[in-house]
Every structure is written in structure tokens, then in C-alpha cells.
């Protein structure tokens, strides 16, 4: 079949020849997950559209009174670093877990580092929300602020979901080992996590930096 000559089969890092059937099965399941991710992207896109239409009314309080550029930079750094560490986890999965007997220590380590970085992101984001509400910018204040809280909050909820998902995977790996099922779950989770960082690029560029210009 043409499978064997194709270099890559699905989005995200592919498992490679050593993983046998897992690799081929990943094609349909991870590709299907990618289709779902794209529909999620449309959802985010609509939140962006609503936000964009309220931007001309962004005043009193607006971005200049409410945003903390330093904190946004920290959140960006946390999320970008967590993207790299999740990549390291999937790289470990590919290179060391073709056989089930491999030690899971390194894989679990990278996943937990990713969770820690994700928690750092969430901590700064929630602090920002609290500070924003205290500075007179709760979501009920204006259409602009409703759209802002919904958009950034939706992303924050996704991150929270991704963190819980990752912890479930870690627990599953520790209890049952890196079997067929957890491999495919990990590949999907990695696609999800990278996707969230992509959405964050749009948020920090358009909402925060664009708002402060």
C-alpha cells in the first residue's frame, strides 16, 4: 500500500515504522481529531469576529486601563514553553516506546513539566481576570468587555480541559503502561495542546497587543 512510502500520515509527530499497527491506526484517529480541531477553530473564529465588531467601542475602561503587557508576555512564555515540552513528550513516545517494556519515567516527566507550565499560564490569566474586574472591567460593563472575557475565557477553559486531560493520561500511563490506547490518546492530546498555542498567538497579537497599539 501507499502507506509505507508516505513519510507522514497525520498532523502532529508521527510514530514511525517501529510502532507497527499503532502508526497506521493513528492515521484515521488523529486525522479525525484534526477535523474536530478545525471545527473548534471556527468556533474561536466566531468569538474573534464578535470581539472585532465591539472593538470600536472599547472605551472607559479600555485596553490601556485594563491590560498588563508584562503579564501577557509571561502567559505567552509559559504556553510556548509548554508547547516545546509537550513536543518533547511526544518525541520520547516515538523514540522510546515502540516496545511496551520501556520505562515511562521520561515521558511522565515531560508531561508533568507541561502541566506545570500550563498551570503557570492559568495562574497568570486568572490573576489578570481578577485584576481586570477590580479595575472596573467586569464582563457586564460593556459589549467590548463581554466579548473580551468570552474569547479569552474560552481559551482558558480549553487550557484547563487540556491540563485535566494530560493528568488523566499520566495516571493511565502510570497504571497501565504506554499501551496502544494511550499512545493514540497522547497523539491527539498533543495536537490539541499545540492548537491551543496557535489560538493564543491570535489572542495576544489581536486582542492584547493590537488593543494597546
Amino acid at each position: 500500500m501507499s502507506f509505507s512510502i508516505r513519510k507522514s500520515l497525520h498532523p502532529g509527530l508521527n510514530l514511525g515504522e517501529d510502532h507497527g499497527d499503532d502508526r497506521l491506526e493513528a492515521e484515521t484517529s488523529v486525522f479525525g481529531f484534526w477535523v474536530f480541531m478545525m471545527s473548534d477553530l471556527v468556533t474561536f473564529g466566531m468569538f474573534f469576529a464578535v470581539f472585532a465588531t465591539t472593538m470600536p467601542l472599547a472605551c472607559c475602561p479600555g485596553p490601556k486601563e485594563l491590560f498588563d503587557l508584562g503579564s501577557v508576555a509571561w502567559q505567552t512564555a509559559f504556553l510556548l514553553a509548554s508547547s516545546l515540552t509537550s513536543g518533547m513528550a511526544i518525541l520520547t513516545l516515538k523514540q522510546e516506546h515502540a516496545s511496551r517494556s520501556a520505562s515511562t519515567k521520561k515521558l511522565v516527566f515531560w508531561l508533568l513539566v507541561t502541566v506545570l507550565l500550563g498551570c503557570g499560564f492559568l495562574y497568570r490569566e486568572i490573576s489578570d481576570f481578577i485584576a481586570m474586574a477590580a479595575a472596573g472591567g467586569p464582563p457586564t460593563r460593556s459589549g467590548y468587555l463581554s466579548a473580551l472575557w468570552s474569547l479569552v475565557g474560552l481559551h482558558g477553559l480549553h487550557v484547563t480541559g487540556g491540563l485535566i486531560w494530560c493528568l488523566v493520561i499520566v495516571a493511565g500511563i502510570v497504571v497501565r503502561g504506554v499501551d496502544h490506547r494511550w499512545k493514540l490518546t497522547l497523539l491527539r492530546w498533543a495536537v490539541f495542546w499545540h492548537f491551543l498555542d496557535v489560538v493564543w498567538i491570535a489572542i495576544f497579537s489581536f486582542v492584547f497587543l493590537g488593543g494597546l497599539l
Binding site: K7, L9, G12, F31, S83, G87, H194, D197, I201, S205
Partner: peptide
Amino acid sequence: AILQLIVHLRYFLHLSFKGQQRED
């Protein structure tokens, strides 16, 4: 922002921009 988007798709999500290898 556009460049970084491409960097993420290329280096983290491993999308290939050449040929029609797959549908993603």
C-alpha cells in the same frame, strides 16, 4: 503573527506545505 502561525504548523504540528501528501 502570520509567520509564527506558519512556524507552529510547520515545526510543532508537522504539516507539510509541499505536495498533496494528505488532506490535513
